[in-house]
Design a protein around this nucleic acid. Structure first.
Length: 139
DNA sequence: GCCAACGTTGGC
DNA sequence: GCCAACGTTGGC
């Protein structure tokens, strides 16, 4: 089991929209970064991820599950781009802000804290546990 | 709204 | 193959 983090501006694609898709889930389309694409290619069915609202909110708001492996991104004809599908699992009881992550020394190596530009990132099992704890939510 | 950081593009 | 220019992301 691996853990990941997905970033989205809530004006573009929000947690609420993700929840509305239910168990069918939705393509995580629109990613145009090789780094992010390569990370998505590594994902396995059943892997879990954080759903993060960038820009305005800057907080992790819930947990999602990978429900389809990487496949061509249907939002473009460009065959270079692929994406996975994800479905909402549960919301955080308490959203975990970027400031909270930065303030916790145990999360100093988190990609979210160190590389603000990567929109799909890996999360270590330790970081997963800590962030869930901060969010008062079951891992 | 600004701008730093970073990835990508394209001229050479 | 290098690197300057450019575009985009996202924190502030």
């Amino acid at each position: 089991m691996n853990y990941w983090l997905f970033k989205s501006e809530s004006e573009v694609w929000s947690w609420d929209q993700q929840v509305a898709k239910g168990d069918i889930g939705e393509e995580w389309d629109g990613v145009r970064s090789y780094q992010a694409r390569n990370i998505m290619r590594e994902m396995q069915l059943g892997d879990l991820g954080f759903f993060y609202h960038s820009r305005a909110e800057k907080e992790i708001v819930g947990i999602i599950e990978v429900c389809a492996l990487a496949h061509p991104d249907s939002s473009t004809d460009d065959e270079r781009w692929e994406c996975v599908d994800i479905k909402a699992v549960r919301p955080f009881v308490k959203p975990v802000t970027l400031a909270t992550c930065k303030a916790d020394p145990r999360l100093a190596d988190m990609v979210l804290v160190n590389n603000s530009r990567l929109s799909v990132q890996p999360v270590s099992p330790e970081e997963w546990t800590i962030v869930c704890e901060l969010g008062a939510t079951d891992p």
